[in-house]
Design a protein around this nucleic acid. Sequence first.
DNA 1: CATGAATGAGCTTTCATTCAT
DNA 2: TATGAATGAAAGCTCATTCAT
Lengths: 203, 203, 203, 203
Amino acid sequence: MYKHTYKDETVAKGDTYKHIIDSALALVAEFGLEKASLSMIANKAGISKPAIYYYFSSKEALLDHLFNLLFDDYQFDHYFPLETYTKDNFSSLLTDNGLHLLQEYDENPELLKIINHFIVYAGQKQAYDEKLKHTLTEFLDGFRRLLIHGQKLGVIKEGEDLTAKSQLLGLVLDNISSYLLMGIKVESTAVWTQAVSYVMGDD
Amino acid sequence: MYKHTYKDETVAKGDTYKHIIDSALALVAEFGLEKASLSMIANKAGISKPAIYYYFSSKEALLDHLFNLLFDDYQFDHYFPLETYTKDNFSSLLTDNGLHLLQEYDENPELLKIINHFIVYAGQKQAYDEKLKHTLTEFLDGFRRLLIHGQKLGVIKEGEDLTAKSQLLGLVLDNISSYLLMGIKVESTAVWTQAVSYVMGDD
Amino acid sequence: MYKHTYKDETVAKGDTYKHIIDSALALVAEFGLEKASLSMIANKAGISKPAIYYYFSSKEALLDHLFNLLFDDYQFDHYFPLETYTKDNFSSLLTDNGLHLLQEYDENPELLKIINHFIVYAGQKQAYDEKLKHTLTEFLDGFRRLLIHGQKLGVIKEGEDLTAKSQLLGLVLDNISSYLLMGIKVESTAVWTQAVSYVMGDD
Amino acid sequence: MYKHTYKDETVAKGDTYKHIIDSALALVAEFGLEKASLSMIANKAGISKPAIYYYFSSKEALLDHLFNLLFDDYQFDHYFPLETYTKDNFSSLLTDNGLHLLQEYDENPELLKIINHFIVYAGQKQAYDEKLKHTLTEFLDGFRRLLIHGQKLGVIKEGEDLTAKSQLLGLVLDNISSYLLMGIKVESTAVWTQAVSYVMGDD
DNA sequence: CATGAATGAGCTTTCATTCAT
DNA sequence: TATGAATGAAAGCTCATTCAT
C-alpha cells in the first residue's frame, strides 16, 4: 500500500472543515476507524459534536471522505512517471523511484496506518473493497506497462513473463512498507535493489 | 502472513467452549475484533452472554486466546522443513513448500482475515505487536537459514547477499496471500516460481 | 453527624441538573450509594440515563458532587457562632444552638441518612474518609475553641480539661442525631441540656 | 455500637459452614453488605458458589444470620454486670467496664465496621431496623437500671434525672467507639471518665 | 455435600444521532 | 454555522440464583 502526502483541495470550505478532517485522520491512525469516535474528533478539532454533522451527514460519510482522500489521487504514474524513463536511466530510475516511494511512507507512518485500517475495514464495506481492489490492481498494472515500455526501449529482453515480474515488483514494494510500518527490520534498499536488478535481467 | 489450518487441542473442555471459540473466530473474521461483540458471539454459540465469562475472564482474554491460537504454533519449519532439503530437491522443494502454504491459506480465507484484524489491532496492543513482530521476523529468518543451508549444499553461490534474498522471498510470499485475500488477481504460482528461481540464481 | 439544610447554589445550570441531584439525593437516602442506580436516578428525574452523563462524567463524579454538597459548607461556626457568645448568654446560647441543630436534622431526616451512607462508604474511598475525618475533627475542635472562649469570658473555670469536655459535647450532640435518625427515643433536650450544664460546671 | 468478640455456637455444622461465615464477615467488613458478593465469599472460603446455598437459602439469609450473630447475644449485662456493683466500687467499676468495652472494640475494628454496615442497611430492611432499635434501646435502659441501682446503693443522689444521665452515658460510650473506628482522635479514657464522674455527681 | 455450567436481570458507560435554538 | 441538551441502542461486565450430577 503506498500513498503520497495527503493534500486536501477543498480550500474554500473553511478551517473547521479541515480541522475535522485532520483530527479524524490523526485519531483514526491512532485508534482505528471504530474507536475514533465523533466525540474525540470534535474534541480534537475544537468544535462541538453536532458541528461535524454540518459537514458530513454521518460518521460513515466522514470516513468515506477520508477513504477517497487517501485513495483517489493514488496513481502509479505519480511515483513512476513512464515518460521520464529512457534506455539509459531505466534501471536506476526504477530503483530511485521505488526508494523514493518507500522514503515517503517512512516519513508518514500515520498514512500507512490509516490505510491499513481501511484495508481491513474494506472486508466489511463493499464500496471500499472494490475501490481498493481497483487501486491495487492498477498499481500492479502500472509496473506491467512500465516493463513493456522497457522492452520497447530494449532494456528488458523479449519473451519474458512480464506479468509475473511486474507483480513481483509490486508485491515486494508494497510489503516492504507494511513491514516497515510494523517496525520489522527489513533491508529495504537492498531488497528493492535486488528486485529491480532481477527484473532487469542483471546479475 | 501465513498460517496453517487452526486446530484446537483442548478437546476435553466440552462443546460450549469450542462453540464460543468457533463463533468468535467466525464473527471476528466477518466484523473485526471490536465489532464482534460478546452478544453476537453468545448468540451464534447458542448460549447466553454471561456463559462466555465462565470460560474467559473478559473479552480481551477471549481475543488473546484467539490470537495465541493463530500465532502460537506458527513456525517456518512447519512449511519449510530444513532437514528435508537436499542438493537435488532444493529448488523444487522450495517452490512446492511455498505453493503449498499459499494453497492452505487459499482454502482458509477466514483465517487470513482474522489475522489481518489482529495485525491492525496490534497497533493498539503492545503484547500483540511484539509477538507479531517476533513471529514475522522469525519467518524471514527461516528463509535466511534455509538459504545458508543451500549454500552449504552448494546450490546457492557463495558471496551472495542472502539477507536481502531471503527477505525478498518472505515479503513476496506474505504479500501474495494478502492480495489473494483481498481478491486481487495475482499469478501466485508464476510469481513465486520466479522469486525462487531468482534466489537460486537460475535464469 | 450534623448538617444544615442543603441548598444548591448553581441556579443557572437549569432544571435537569437540579432534578438529577434531587433524585440522586432522594434515592441515595432510600437505597444507599450503590443500590441507587443511574437508571433509577434518571427515571426519577424524568430523563434518560445518558443524560446524566451530560452533567456528570461518571456515577462516582455524581456521588462526589453530592458528598461535597453535604460536607463542604459544614462548619461549626454556622451552628455555634463564637462571636455571639457573651458572659451572660453563654450557657443558654450553647444550649439553644445545640437544640437548634438537632431540630434541623430532625426536620431533614433524609440528609442524615445520606450522610450515614457516605460515612460507611468512606471506609472504601479514601478521599471521603479524609474529608470526613477532617470535618468531624474540626467540629470537635470548634467546641474546644468555644470552651476556651468561655474561659476567657470567665464563665468556665480555669484548669479544667477542656479537651475532654469539648469532645463530650461533640460526641453527645452527634450521637443524639444518629439515634433520632434510627428512631430510638432519646430525650434529646434533656440530655443536651445536662451535657451543657455539666460542661459549664453547673450542678 | 458495642459488641463483644463473636463466637459461633453451632459447632456441629462442620468446617465449611464456619468458613462461609468467617469469609462473609471479613468481606462484609472490607467491602460492605452488597459489594461482598457470594463469589468473593465462596472464593475466600475455598468452596464453590453453590455450596453456600446448601447452608443458606439466599444471600439475604446469610446476611440475616450474620446480623443475628452480631446482635443476638448483645447484652448490657455482659459489659456492666449489675450484680457486681457495690457502694464502694460503683464509680470505678462503671469506669472500668466502659473502658474495657472500648478496648474490646478497639481490638476488633472489623466487628464495628460490619455493625456499621448493618446499621445503615437497617434503613432498608425493617426486620433489622426493629432489632437494632430494640438492642440499642435495651442498652440505654441498662444504664438506667444501673443508675437506679446506684441510687439504691446510695451512691447517686435521689431526685436526679436518671433517664437523661443514663442516655448521656450510652450516647457517649457508643459514639466514642464510632469515632475511634473512623480514626478520629478522641481522648476516650478522659471523656468516659468525665462522663462517669458527672453522672456520679463528683466534681 | 458440593460442584460445573449456565442464565436473567441489571449495572455503568459509550456511541452515533437528533433537534430546537 | 454551530451548539447545548438529550436519547435509543448497545457495549462489556457482575450478580444472585438454579439445576443436573
